[in-house]
Design a protein around this nucleic acid. Structure first.
Lengths: 98, 98
DNA sequence: TTTATATGCAATGATTTCATTGCATGTCAA
DNA sequence: TTGACATGCAATGAAATCATTGCATATAAA
Protein backbone atom coordinates (compact mmCIF):
# COMPACT_ATOMS: atom_id res chain seq x y z
CA UNK A 1 0.00 0.00 0.00
CA UNK A 2 2.09 2.88 -1.29
CA UNK A 3 0.49 6.01 0.08
CA UNK A 4 1.58 8.74 -2.26
CA UNK A 5 -0.33 11.94 -2.91
CA UNK A 6 -2.23 10.44 -5.84
CA UNK A 7 -3.45 7.59 -3.72
CA UNK A 8 -4.70 10.02 -1.07
CA UNK A 9 -6.43 11.94 -3.87
CA UNK A 10 -8.21 8.81 -5.09
CA UNK A 11 -9.31 7.79 -1.61
CA UNK A 12 -10.71 11.16 -0.57
CA UNK A 13 -12.27 11.73 -3.97
CA UNK A 14 -13.90 8.30 -3.76
CA UNK A 15 -15.45 9.25 -0.43
CA UNK A 16 -16.59 12.68 -1.61
CA UNK A 17 -19.87 11.42 -3.08
CA UNK A 18 -22.98 10.29 -1.22
CA UNK A 19 -23.72 7.42 -3.61
CA UNK A 20 -20.23 6.00 -3.12
CA UNK A 21 -20.38 6.40 0.65
CA UNK A 22 -23.72 4.61 0.52
CA UNK A 23 -22.11 1.76 -1.40
CA UNK A 24 -19.36 1.55 1.21
CA UNK A 25 -21.98 1.45 3.98
CA UNK A 26 -23.91 -1.24 2.14
CA UNK A 27 -20.82 -3.37 1.55
CA UNK A 28 -19.79 -2.95 5.15
CA UNK A 29 -22.99 -4.58 6.35
CA UNK A 30 -22.78 -7.42 3.83
CA UNK A 31 -19.68 -8.20 1.72
CA UNK A 32 -19.71 -10.00 -1.61
CA UNK A 33 -22.63 -8.24 -3.23
CA UNK A 34 -23.13 -8.10 -6.98
CA UNK A 35 -23.51 -4.99 -9.07
CA UNK A 36 -27.17 -5.88 -9.47
CA UNK A 37 -27.79 -6.06 -5.75
CA UNK A 38 -25.92 -2.83 -5.18
CA UNK A 39 -27.98 -1.09 -7.84
CA UNK A 40 -31.19 -2.05 -6.11
CA UNK A 41 -29.71 -0.94 -2.82
CA UNK A 42 -28.56 2.41 -4.20
CA UNK A 43 -32.04 3.04 -5.46
CA UNK A 44 -33.56 2.09 -2.11
CA UNK A 45 -31.00 4.18 -0.20
CA UNK A 46 -30.41 7.30 -2.18
CA UNK A 47 -33.40 9.11 -3.53
CA UNK A 48 -33.59 9.67 -7.23
CA UNK A 49 -32.90 6.26 -8.79
CA UNK A 50 -29.83 5.76 -10.90
CA UNK A 51 -28.84 3.72 -13.91
CA UNK A 52 -26.85 0.51 -13.56
CA UNK A 53 -23.94 2.09 -15.43
CA UNK A 54 -23.80 5.00 -13.04
CA UNK A 55 -23.51 2.63 -10.09
CA UNK A 56 -20.93 0.61 -12.00
CA UNK A 57 -18.81 3.70 -12.57
CA UNK A 58 -19.01 4.62 -8.90
CA UNK A 59 -17.84 1.14 -8.01
CA UNK A 60 -14.98 1.53 -10.48
CA UNK A 61 -13.83 4.62 -8.61
CA UNK A 62 -13.99 2.81 -5.30
CA UNK A 63 -12.07 -0.06 -6.87
CA UNK A 64 -9.38 2.24 -8.27
CA UNK A 65 -8.99 3.75 -4.82
CA UNK A 66 -8.44 0.19 -3.56
CA UNK A 67 -11.48 0.40 -1.30
CA UNK A 68 -13.40 -2.32 -3.13
CA UNK A 69 -12.13 -5.64 -4.38
CA UNK A 70 -13.80 -7.72 -7.01
CA UNK A 71 -14.14 -11.40 -7.79
CA UNK A 72 -16.04 -12.97 -10.65
CA UNK A 73 -18.35 -15.91 -10.11
CA UNK A 74 -19.75 -16.96 -13.42
CA UNK A 75 -21.47 -13.98 -14.92
CA UNK A 76 -21.69 -12.23 -11.56
CA UNK A 77 -19.23 -9.66 -10.24
CA UNK A 78 -18.95 -9.71 -6.50
CA UNK A 79 -17.75 -6.67 -4.58
CA UNK A 80 -16.09 -6.64 -1.20
CA UNK A 81 -14.90 -3.78 0.94
CA UNK A 82 -11.21 -3.37 1.72
CA UNK A 83 -10.59 -0.75 4.36
CA UNK A 84 -6.82 -1.09 4.23
CA UNK A 85 -6.38 2.07 2.13
CA UNK A 86 -8.55 4.05 4.52
CA UNK A 87 -6.45 2.99 7.47
CA UNK A 88 -3.33 3.77 5.47
CA UNK A 89 -4.69 7.26 4.79
CA UNK A 90 -5.32 7.63 8.49
CA UNK A 91 -1.74 6.61 9.22
CA UNK A 92 -0.20 8.70 6.46
CA UNK A 93 -2.13 11.95 6.72
CA UNK A 94 -5.50 12.08 8.48
CA UNK A 95 -4.07 11.02 11.81
CA UNK A 96 -1.87 14.10 11.96
CA UNK A 97 -4.97 16.31 11.96
CA UNK A 98 -7.40 14.52 14.24
CA UNK B 1 -21.92 21.59 12.94
CA UNK B 2 -24.69 19.93 10.98
CA UNK B 3 -23.13 16.89 9.35
CA UNK B 4 -25.36 16.18 6.39
CA UNK B 5 -24.26 14.46 3.20
CA UNK B 6 -23.35 17.73 1.50
CA UNK B 7 -21.06 18.69 4.33
CA UNK B 8 -19.29 15.32 4.10
CA UNK B 9 -18.98 15.93 0.36
CA UNK B 10 -17.35 19.30 0.91
CA UNK B 11 -14.93 17.99 3.51
CA UNK B 12 -13.74 14.97 1.55
CA UNK B 13 -13.59 16.96 -1.67
CA UNK B 14 -11.55 19.62 0.07
CA UNK B 15 -9.04 16.99 1.16
CA UNK B 16 -8.89 15.33 -2.27
CA UNK B 17 -6.23 17.67 -3.61
CA UNK B 18 -2.53 17.75 -2.74
CA UNK B 19 -2.30 21.54 -2.78
CA UNK B 20 -5.14 21.83 -0.28
CA UNK B 21 -3.70 19.12 1.96
CA UNK B 22 -0.42 21.02 1.81
CA UNK B 23 -2.22 24.17 2.94
CA UNK B 24 -3.79 22.27 5.82
CA UNK B 25 -0.37 20.93 6.80
CA UNK B 26 1.13 24.41 6.61
CA UNK B 27 -1.65 25.97 8.69
CA UNK B 28 -1.35 23.18 11.23
CA UNK B 29 2.25 24.08 11.92
CA UNK B 30 1.55 27.81 12.11
CA UNK B 31 -1.95 29.33 12.31
CA UNK B 32 -2.88 32.82 11.22
CA UNK B 33 -1.02 32.95 7.92
CA UNK B 34 -1.93 35.33 5.13
CA UNK B 35 -2.75 34.37 1.58
CA UNK B 36 0.59 35.82 0.55
CA UNK B 37 2.53 33.63 2.97
CA UNK B 38 0.57 30.57 1.94
CA UNK B 39 1.28 31.27 -1.72
CA UNK B 40 4.99 31.34 -1.09
CA UNK B 41 4.65 28.17 0.96
CA UNK B 42 2.65 26.39 -1.73
CA UNK B 43 5.32 27.21 -4.24
CA UNK B 44 8.04 25.98 -1.91
CA UNK B 45 6.08 22.82 -1.04
CA UNK B 46 4.41 21.71 -4.18
CA UNK B 47 6.44 21.60 -7.33
CA UNK B 48 5.21 23.58 -10.27
CA UNK B 49 4.48 27.06 -8.86
CA UNK B 50 0.94 28.33 -8.85
CA UNK B 51 -0.78 31.67 -9.21
CA UNK B 52 -2.05 33.59 -6.21
CA UNK B 53 -5.63 33.19 -7.43
CA UNK B 54 -5.29 29.44 -7.63
CA UNK B 55 -4.17 29.30 -4.01
CA UNK B 56 -6.96 31.69 -3.07
CA UNK B 57 -9.54 29.44 -4.68
CA UNK B 58 -8.16 26.41 -2.88
CA UNK B 59 -8.44 28.31 0.39
CA UNK B 60 -12.03 29.19 -0.48
CA UNK B 61 -12.84 25.50 -0.79
CA UNK B 62 -11.25 24.77 2.55
CA UNK B 63 -13.20 27.67 4.04
CA UNK B 64 -16.49 26.45 2.56
CA UNK B 65 -15.81 23.06 4.08
CA UNK B 66 -15.38 24.84 7.40
CA UNK B 67 -11.80 23.66 7.70
CA UNK B 68 -10.30 27.15 7.52
CA UNK B 69 -11.48 30.29 9.27
CA UNK B 70 -10.60 33.77 8.22
CA UNK B 71 -10.03 37.09 9.96
CA UNK B 72 -9.11 40.38 8.32
CA UNK B 73 -6.36 42.54 9.75
CA UNK B 74 -6.10 45.68 7.66
CA UNK B 75 -5.51 44.61 4.10
CA UNK B 76 -4.34 41.18 5.18
CA UNK B 77 -6.49 38.05 5.32
CA UNK B 78 -5.39 35.65 8.00
CA UNK B 79 -6.23 31.95 7.78
CA UNK B 80 -6.53 29.54 10.63
CA UNK B 81 -7.24 25.84 10.68
CA UNK B 82 -10.42 24.52 12.26
CA UNK B 83 -10.42 20.76 12.59
CA UNK B 84 -13.89 20.57 14.09
CA UNK B 85 -15.51 19.49 10.79
CA UNK B 86 -12.91 16.77 10.34
CA UNK B 87 -13.63 15.36 13.78
CA UNK B 88 -17.35 15.64 13.05
CA UNK B 89 -16.81 13.64 9.85
CA UNK B 90 -14.95 11.06 11.88
CA UNK B 91 -17.84 10.86 14.32
CA UNK B 92 -20.56 10.86 11.67
CA UNK B 93 -19.15 8.52 9.06
CA UNK B 94 -15.42 7.74 8.95
CA UNK B 95 -15.39 6.19 12.39
CA UNK B 96 -17.78 3.47 11.31
CA UNK B 97 -15.22 2.26 8.76
CA UNK B 98 -11.92 2.46 10.58
C1' DT C 1 -0.96 62.54 -2.26
C1' DT C 2 1.35 59.25 -4.60
C1' DT C 3 2.95 54.58 -4.76
C1' DA C 4 3.32 49.93 -3.38
C1' DT C 5 0.99 46.07 -1.16
C1' DA C 6 -2.64 42.45 -0.30
C1' DT C 7 -6.44 40.99 -1.94
C1' DG C 8 -11.05 40.48 -4.73
C1' DC C 9 -13.82 39.81 -8.87
C1' DA C 10 -14.80 38.10 -13.51
C1' DA C 11 -13.96 35.74 -17.71
C1' DT C 12 -11.76 32.04 -20.01
C1' DG C 13 -10.35 27.30 -21.06
C1' DA C 14 -8.73 22.51 -20.43
C1' DT C 15 -9.90 18.59 -17.87
C1' DT C 16 -12.59 15.65 -14.90
C1' DT C 17 -16.96 14.15 -12.82
C1' DC C 18 -21.53 12.40 -12.99
C1' DA C 19 -25.10 10.40 -15.31
C1' DT C 20 -27.30 8.95 -19.49
C1' DT C 21 -28.27 5.92 -23.66
C1' DG C 22 -27.45 2.22 -27.00
C1' DC C 23 -25.37 -1.79 -28.17
C1' DA C 24 -22.29 -5.85 -27.42
C1' DT C 25 -20.59 -9.94 -24.87
C1' DG C 26 -20.48 -13.81 -21.92
C1' DT C 27 -22.93 -17.07 -18.83
C1' DC C 28 -26.65 -19.71 -17.04
C1' DA C 29 -31.27 -22.01 -17.55
C1' DA C 30 -35.20 -24.12 -20.15
C1' DT D 1 -30.04 -24.09 -28.94
C1' DT D 2 -32.64 -20.47 -27.66
C1' DG D 3 -33.58 -16.99 -24.48
C1' DA D 4 -32.99 -14.50 -20.30
C1' DC D 5 -29.68 -12.55 -17.23
C1' DA D 6 -25.43 -9.88 -15.48
C1' DT D 7 -22.27 -7.16 -17.01
C1' DG D 8 -18.95 -4.41 -20.23
C1' DC D 9 -17.81 -0.87 -23.60
C1' DA D 10 -18.31 3.55 -26.00
C1' DA D 11 -20.27 7.92 -27.01
C1' DT D 12 -22.60 11.83 -25.37
C1' DG D 13 -23.54 15.91 -22.54
C1' DA D 14 -24.22 18.94 -18.51
C1' DA D 15 -21.81 20.49 -14.68
C1' DA D 16 -17.87 21.05 -11.63
C1' DT D 17 -12.74 21.43 -10.92
C1' DC D 18 -8.32 23.47 -11.59
C1' DA D 19 -5.61 26.98 -13.14
C1' DT D 20 -4.89 31.09 -15.81
C1' DT D 21 -5.10 36.21 -17.04
C1' DG D 22 -6.55 41.02 -16.61
C1' DC D 23 -8.39 44.49 -14.08
C1' DA D 24 -10.34 46.63 -9.81
C1' DT D 25 -10.35 47.92 -4.85
C1' DA D 26 -8.79 48.91 -0.33
C1' DT D 27 -5.12 49.59 2.98
C1' DA D 28 -0.51 50.88 4.29
C1' DA D 29 3.83 53.34 3.53
C1' DA D 30 6.85 57.14 1.51
Amino acid sequence: MSMDADQLDRIFKALADPTRRGLVDRLATRPGQSLFELCAAAVADGQPAMSRQAVSQHLDMLEKAGLVQVTWVGRTKLHTLDLTPLRAAQAAWLGRHM
